[in-house]
């Protein structure tokens, strides 16, 4: 049932690095009738700097898992520690603050604001993250350079290709320097070539030390990760 040796429920040896993400016996049930258990006693641990993919068919609980990892949803039962901090005790505003400053999101549908420029889109999360004002624009430019879109700052997202839009979304996610980047089907709307670009970009970011959790139903995408966690019917069925 354990996803990896690091995810055992036994206390870690003192001085061992704190996992970035730790789920313990997490169950998420949606009240019915009939009551649906989207996640059933899941234990997952992701170390700092790790690149993990969560794979499973639709209905396996992937999205629920992402929502819980992203502090967008709460487990019904069980504990979720983010960077060693137990999140169940946090109020909504505190969870928002943690999302703003420790998590980055990349979505299948990009979720870019169509009437703002690329640069403004990347600046948005820093507004809520409390990034020092003077650093915001340099950081956004740096993030866009990093994803290879330094020449598209003033463009509207509508004029970009799908791959470019997803790279803007990645830049937006990393500009706040999160601890963990959560990607939900990041290549779901992209063709194979641009998917490969994004995956390569993820690898580069991971090489720079970013912890990555990619949720996908695509085996090809999942295989690029260091470790795969397979979900089936709300349970972790295997880890590779």
């Amino acid at each position: 049932m354990t996803a990896s040796p690091a995810a055992t429920t036994a206390p870690l040896p003192a001085g061992a690095p704190e996992p970035a993400i730790e789920l313990r016996d997490v169950t998420r049930s949606f009240p019915g009738p009939p009551e649906v258990q989207a996640l059933k006693g899941v234990n997952v641990s992701v170390a700092d700097g790790e690149y993990v993919s969560i794979i499973g068919p639709s209905g396996s609980g992937k999205s629920t898992m992402l929502n819980i990892l992203g502090l967008l949803d709460r487990p019904t039962v069980g504990e979720y520690r983010l960077g060693g901090v137990l999140t169940s005790g946090l109020g909504e505003d505190e969870r928002a603050a943690v999302r703003a400053r420790q998590l980055g999101f990349v979505f299948q549908a990009f979720h870019l604001m169509s009437r703002r420029t690329v640069l403004e889109n990347v600046l948005l999360p820093m507004l809520y993250a409390g990034t020092p004002r003077a650093e915001r624009e340099p950081r956004a430019r740096e993030a866009l350079e990093r994803v290879g879109l330094g020449h598209r700052l003033g463009f509207q997202p509508g004029t970009l290709s799908g791959g470019e839009r997803q790279r803007v979304a990645v830049a937006r996610a990393v500009a706040t320097r999160p601890r963990v980047l959560l990607a939900d089907e990041p290549t779901g709307n992209l063709d194979q070539a641009t998917s490969a670009e994004i995956m390569a970009l993820f690898e580069e970011l991971n090489d720079d030390g970013l912890t990555l959790v990619v949720i996908t139903h695509d085996d090809g995408v999942a295989r690029r990760a260091h470790r795969r966690i397979r979900l089936a019917d709300g349970r972790v069925s295997s880890a590779a």
Partner: peptide
Amino acid sequence: LRGRRGGRRGDAAGPATTP
């Protein structure tokens, strides 16, 4: 947030302890 940090690992060092 700081106050709620798990007591068990309260003594651990490193970036993980500064949420």
